[in-house]
Structure formats: C-alpha cells, structure tokens
Simulated scan of single mutants.
Amino acid sequence: MANSLDDPKHVLVDRAARRMAEEFGDSSLTVRQKLALTCRVLFDAGHDSGLAGQITARGNRPGTYYTQRLGYGFDEVTEDNLLLVDEDLQVLEGDGMPNPANRFHSWIYRAREDVTCIVHTHPLHAASLAMLEVPLIVSQMDTTPLYDDCAFLPTWPGIPVGNEEGEIISAALGDKRAVLLAHHGQLVAGRTVEEACNLAVLIERAARMQLLAMSAGTIRPLPDDLAREAHDWTSTPQRHRATFAYYARRALRRHPDCVAPGTVIG
C-alpha cells in the first residue's frame, strides 16, 4: 500500500533530493579522464567542427588548466595526450601546443572563481542559431537547466586569440553558465566538468529544438516560476553526476581508447 500519495510536492522533492545525494556521490575519475570522456561525449553529440573549439579545466596549481592539443579532434583526445598549460599558454605538461584561442578562457577563470571547466564549440544547430543573431529561448522542460542562465553576445569580435576577446566574452557571460555567441558558437562554464559536459550537450539540443519550433510557429514562453523551479531541480551536483555517468558509459563503449583500460564509471 502506498504511503506517499497524499504528500505535498515540496515533501516529495526534498525526499528525492536526499535520496539522490545518497546515491550519486563523488566520482573516482580524474580530471584528465573526465575531460577525455567529455570530448568523446561532445563528438558523438554533434559538437565536432574540425579543430574548432576548446575544452579546459582548472589544474591543481592556480593559473593553470588542462586542455587538448592543437591538431587533435575531440574524437582523438585521451587522458594521456591532454596538456597542462599556464595563462600564457606555455605547456607545463605534455607534448604539442594548445589552441591559441584558449586565451579567452583565462579571462573567464579570473572573473569566475566558481567555474572549473569551460567548453567552447561550434555545433551545427547552436552555430546556425547564432547566425540569426537570435538569443537562445528556453521553452521546454528538458532545457530548463539553461532557463535564464544563457547569455547572448550579439556582436562577433573576430577570432578569439587576443585579450580583447577575453574581456568581451567574459563580460557577456557575466554570472550565467552559458552564452550564445553571435556568428560563432556556444560556450558553457561549469562548476564541475560534469556540469559543463551536460550543459554543452543540452545547449546544442536546445538550439536544434528552437530552430525546429521557429520553423513551425511562434514559441510560447514557460511560466517563470515553474521554469525556475525546474532549473534548480535539474542543476544539482547529484543530477549532473548521474547524467554525466550515463553519457560517459555510453562514450566509453564507443571510444574505449580515451581512458586507461579498466576505468570504472559509476
């Protein structure tokens, strides 16, 4: 016999949150492994655009971060070929050179102490929406993690290899977790690698849904209070860990070379 059918919503929400906190603890994966898996997840999710795009995560020492080697696509990144660089993009660990466009990541890390991972890519649908100079519209339940959490940069500053681009892009991002860059692509800034991975997958899906909806009619807005509730419910560390683990297991089946043999994902 059910005992919870008369419980109010807030009681059920709190109960589920406690259960998830117990069930989905910290991962045993290293930062390098999480980044390598994220690259494969994003490749499979349509974020591939040749050598365009970067992924970074803070290193153990201040002013350092891990990133992929220039010349390697997202489908070639492994935990062993990632680089550790400083804010001048000097390589501290690894062989090769980083993408010169990584410079603007340093500006975001300096402005946002809460950010530990940045994903910038040019996926087809996000880039297409950016061509229209139209902000991302969140109007469907699955995309609510981005509700009122995706900024918009309406002008293209050109190639992002100068300090000016760092100032412009970090200012446009502000305190949001994502930004759509006109005539360019998307960027997400996560508190964890798991969060950044999930939001990057989601922003491309949201852009695709928006383009489809725009072609069929007028997009109707979500009720603000319910959208904010859904944003918060889907933005917990536990939800991000659970979602990332699923994406990572799927990626590992397709790309077993990206991490050491025997790596276990929860």
Results as ranks from 00 to 15, higher is better:
residue 196 A to K: 00
residue 196 A to N: 03
residue 196 A to F: 02
residue 197 C to K: 01
residue 198 N to V: 11
residue 198 N to R: 03
residue 198 N to C: 15
residue 199 L to R: 01
residue 199 L to P: 01
residue 200 A to Q: 01
residue 200 A to W: 00
residue 201 V to M: 00
residue 201 V to S: 00
residue 203 I to L: 03
residue 203 I to T: 01
residue 203 I to K: 00
residue 204 E to Y: 01
residue 204 E to D: 10
residue 204 E to H: 04
residue 205 R to V: 09
residue 206 A to D: 03
residue 208 R to N: 11
residue 209 M to D: 07
residue 209 M to L: 10
residue 209 M to Q: 06
residue 210 Q to Y: 02
residue 211 L to I: 11
residue 212 L to D: 08
residue 212 L to K: 02
residue 212 L to Y: 06
residue 213 A to Q: 02
residue 213 A to H: 01
residue 214 M to C: 04
residue 214 M to F: 04
residue 214 M to V: 05
residue 215 S to L: 07
residue 215 S to V: 05
residue 215 S to H: 05
residue 216 A to R: 12
residue 217 G to L: 06
residue 217 G to W: 03
residue 217 G to A: 08
residue 218 T to W: 04
residue 218 T to A: 13
residue 218 T to G: 03
residue 219 I to V: 15
residue 221 P to S: 11
residue 221 P to A: 12
residue 221 P to M: 10
residue 222 L to N: 05
residue 223 P to S: 08
residue 224 D to Q: 12
residue 224 D to E: 14
residue 224 D to S: 12
residue 225 D to K: 12
residue 225 D to V: 14
residue 226 L to P: 02
residue 227 A to Y: 05
residue 227 A to I: 11
residue 228 R to L: 14
residue 229 E to P: 06
residue 230 A to N: 13
residue 230 A to I: 05
residue 231 H to T: 06
residue 232 D to R: 14
residue 232 D to P: 04
residue 232 D to C: 11
residue 232 D to I: 12
residue 234 T to D: 07
residue 234 T to N: 12
residue 234 T to H: 13
residue 234 T to K: 08
residue 235 S to L: 08
residue 235 S to N: 11
residue 236 T to Y: 01
residue 236 T to P: 03
residue 237 P to C: 13
residue 237 P to F: 10
residue 238 Q to A: 13
residue 238 Q to N: 06
residue 238 Q to Y: 07
residue 238 Q to H: 09
residue 240 H to S: 03
residue 240 H to I: 01
residue 241 R to E: 06
residue 241 R to S: 06
residue 241 R to T: 07
residue 241 R to V: 05
residue 241 R to G: 03
residue 242 A to K: 04
residue 242 A to C: 06
residue 242 A to D: 09
residue 243 T to F: 02
residue 243 T to C: 09
residue 244 F to A: 04
residue 244 F to N: 00
residue 244 F to P: 00
residue 245 A to K: 02
residue 245 A to Y: 04
residue 246 Y to P: 03
residue 247 Y to T: 07
residue 248 A to C: 07
residue 248 A to L: 12
residue 248 A to Q: 09
residue 249 R to G: 13
residue 249 R to Q: 15
residue 251 A to E: 11
residue 251 A to I: 12
residue 251 A to Y: 08
residue 251 A to D: 11
residue 252 L to M: 15
residue 254 R to N: 13
residue 255 H to F: 15
residue 255 H to K: 02
residue 255 H to D: 10
residue 256 P to K: 03
residue 256 P to S: 05
residue 257 D to Y: 12
residue 257 D to V: 10
residue 258 C to T: 14
residue 258 C to E: 08
residue 259 V to G: 14
residue 260 A to V: 15
residue 260 A to M: 15
residue 260 A to E: 15
residue 261 P to Q: 15
residue 261 P to H: 14
residue 262 G to H: 03
residue 262 G to V: 14
residue 262 G to K: 04
residue 263 T to G: 15
residue 263 T to Y: 08
residue 264 V to F: 13
residue 266 G to H: 10
residue 266 G to Y: 05
